[in-house]
Simulated assay, not measured.
Amino acid sequence: MIQSLSCYRIFYTVAKTGNISKAAKELYISQPAISKSIQKLEESMNCELFRRSSRGVSLTEEGELLYSHVKVAFETLALGEDRLRNSIELGVGHLKIGVSSTLCKYMLLPYLKEFIKLYPHINISITCQSTNDTLKLLEENKIDVGLIGKPESLKNIDFYYLAEIKDIFVATKDYLRNLKARGVKEDRILQSSTIMLLDKNNMTRQYIDDYLQENHIVVQDSIDISSMDLLIEFAKISVGVACVIREFVKKELADGSLIEIPLGFPIHKREVGFAYKKSVKPSKSLELFVDFYKSHELLHS
């Protein structure tokens, strides 16, 4: 572009008003400055853009050609400004969240339900992955925030604690009754059962594998299941003993459809919370979400 944007704005305003005096008032600059800018533009284009008369100015054929393009450009800029202003006023934004399918159902959805009521113009994208995959997406800046089980090392991550969760083993009364009929003692249930666990890429599974190894519990028969919901459902039809999160089977434990198996060595509780990168400047949408869940916890604590 040969001329500056301000020069074209002057040309556009003069052409639109058809009068240098009116253009000067609209642009808050002097008439001589307007005339000088137009002269400079005509010299650079090597043609006359306006015809001058006592009644004002009118575009030449060359001026009409240039104006047809400049008009589109400034109308597009004005539209962009209006949309940006409207976006800011409405709070339009985009928030990308990473979470495991289990935590998404039982912990994230209640937060999102209230957040969306407050900020309906923020678009939400959710990537359901394991905690390990969520941490990787955070590192690669592919998501803004993750709902995860607290990892051993936080590195470049800010972690905001939400709750503790406890892993337990559960089965139906019928399954435990059948084990007892086969002579299986209570302290040998895990070694003698079909144990159902989340797949090996899941942080919960890795945590339970460590627990079993540390306590010298050798599982003879196991099934890998892709989701916590399926673990619960398989356990309820007596396929085997499932490792689940206590907080997510409160209903089943209360109505007796699942029974918690007592352990000689308790499984330590784990922390769950929101995580985001320290080194990345948060977007407005992320700032609103962070403020929301922090204030939400204060109100409910």
Results as ranks from 00 to 15, higher is better:
residue 31 Q to T: 15
residue 285 S to K: 08
residue 155 K to I: 14
residue 8 Y to T: 02
residue 108 L to H: 00
residue 74 F to V: 10
residue 202 N to S: 09
residue 38 I to D: 01
residue 191 Q to F: 04
residue 189 I to T: 03
residue 186 E to S: 12
residue 179 L to P: 02
residue 68 S to G: 02
residue 147 L to W: 01
residue 284 K to A: 14
residue 286 L to C: 06
residue 95 L to W: 00
residue 7 C to K: 09
residue 10 I to D: 01
residue 96 K to I: 02
residue 257 S to Y: 09
residue 31 Q to W: 10
residue 176 L to F: 06
residue 197 L to Y: 01
residue 47 C to Y: 00
residue 95 L to D: 00
residue 95 L to C: 00
residue 233 E to S: 15
residue 280 V to W: 03
residue 203 M to S: 13
residue 180 K to Y: 11
residue 225 I to C: 03
residue 221 D to S: 15
residue 76 T to P: 03
residue 84 L to G: 04
residue 101 S to A: 05
residue 224 D to I: 11
residue 277 K to L: 14
residue 144 D to Y: 02
residue 195 I to F: 02
residue 210 D to A: 15
residue 276 Y to F: 12
residue 175 Y to T: 11
residue 105 K to D: 09
residue 44 S to M: 10
residue 137 L to V: 03
residue 240 G to P: 01
residue 251 K to M: 15
residue 5 L to M: 13
residue 23 A to S: 05
residue 101 S to R: 06
residue 206 Q to G: 14
residue 174 D to H: 12
residue 218 V to M: 10
residue 61 E to C: 06
residue 233 E to V: 15
residue 47 C to T: 04
residue 57 V to L: 04
residue 148 I to M: 04
residue 164 E to G: 10
residue 89 E to W: 14
residue 278 K to V: 06
residue 202 N to E: 13
residue 29 I to E: 04
residue 4 S to Y: 07
residue 258 L to E: 11
residue 129 Q to P: 00
residue 282 P to T: 12
residue 149 G to K: 07
residue 66 L to W: 01
residue 298 L to T: 09
residue 8 Y to I: 02
residue 210 D to Q: 15
residue 118 L to C: 09
residue 264 G to T: 06
residue 296 H to V: 07
residue 138 L to Y: 00
residue 38 I to A: 02
residue 224 D to Q: 12
residue 28 Y to V: 04
residue 141 N to T: 11
residue 250 K to M: 15
residue 284 K to V: 14
residue 261 I to P: 00
residue 8 Y to D: 04
residue 86 N to L: 14
residue 42 E to N: 05
residue 173 K to S: 15
residue 204 T to N: 10
residue 222 S to N: 10
residue 84 L to Q: 15
residue 106 Y to A: 09
residue 274 F to V: 04
residue 82 D to G: 09
residue 10 I to W: 01
residue 57 V to Q: 03
residue 59 L to G: 00
residue 53 S to G: 07
residue 141 N to I: 08
residue 192 S to D: 13
residue 26 E to T: 11
residue 196 M to E: 07
residue 299 L to M: 14
residue 11 F to T: 02
residue 117 K to W: 15
